[in-house]
Design a binder for these strands. Structure first.
Length: 192
DNA sequence: CGCGTTTGACCGGCGC
DNA sequence: GCGCCGGTCAAACGCG
């Protein structure tokens, strides 16, 4: 990887991301993130306008994601819970990020295990696994076919370990092992 | 030499 | 039942 240059400080004073557990998502019983990310005809085009829970707050907060050296990355966070098979993680979160780079280093170490061309999308989808032993968190990275300047990163599962390099947003660890809740700051950093 | 990436093959789920 | 498609595996390869 070429993007292990982590940012020790808060890379984005305009964005507060606080992660708790999935209780947050229980308030969104009908919100299936995967549905939103499913690039279906006539729906994916509304991605930006349908960013119901967080986009209004998050969008506009330019973020230089850890490792992503893009100087103008506008991140749009889509969060939700996906009920999977019992033996699978029941947690899924996705970010739609405006970036030229597909590599979104979030502080964890990922190993690429697959690449696939998906239907109706001119761009390949890349599959990554957390390379930490015992951690079976996966993520998919693909370009938004509607706007190739956006990268959609989907995380499956929850890390069972601390990040090798915890990224802090407003004094709050970006990655917490037991689930995330997104609390974007709409205007400025407002430490509690 | 070890680790990560690449890539074609394989498998399972789902829709018709 | 069959075919399509998304997801995963694993061997080969490349790089540090």
């Amino acid at each position: 990887m070429d993007s292990n240059n982590h940012h020790p400080q808060n890379p984005n004073p305009n964005l507060t991301c606080t992660y708790h557990n999935t209780e947050f998502f229980d308030t969104l019983p009908d919100f299936e993130l995967s549905d939103y990310l499913m690039l279906e005809d006539g729906t994916e085009g509304d991605l930006s306008s349908q960013n119901v829970t967080s986009s209004d707050n998050v969008t506009g907060g330019s973020v230089e994601s850890a490792g992503a050296t893009s100087t103008n990355s506008n991140i749009k966070c889509r969060t939700g819970v996906k009920r999977n098979k019992p033996d699978q993680a029941d947690f899924r979160v996705a970010f739609r990020t405006k970036s030229e780079l597909e590599i979104m280093d979030d502080g964890f170490k990922w190993r690429k295990y697959g690449k696939k061309m998906v239907k109706n999308t001119p761009y390949p989808r890349n599959y990554y696994k957390c390379s930490s032993g015992g951690c079976n968190v996966k993520k998919r990275v693909e370009r938004d076919r509607e706007d190739s300047s956006y990268v959609i990163t989907t995380y499956d599962g929850v890390h069972n370990h601390e990040s090798p390099c915890v990224v802090y947003y407003n004094h709050t660890p970006l990655m917490v092992p037991h689930g995330w809740t997104l609390q974007p700051s709409s205007s400025q950093s407002s430490p509690s």
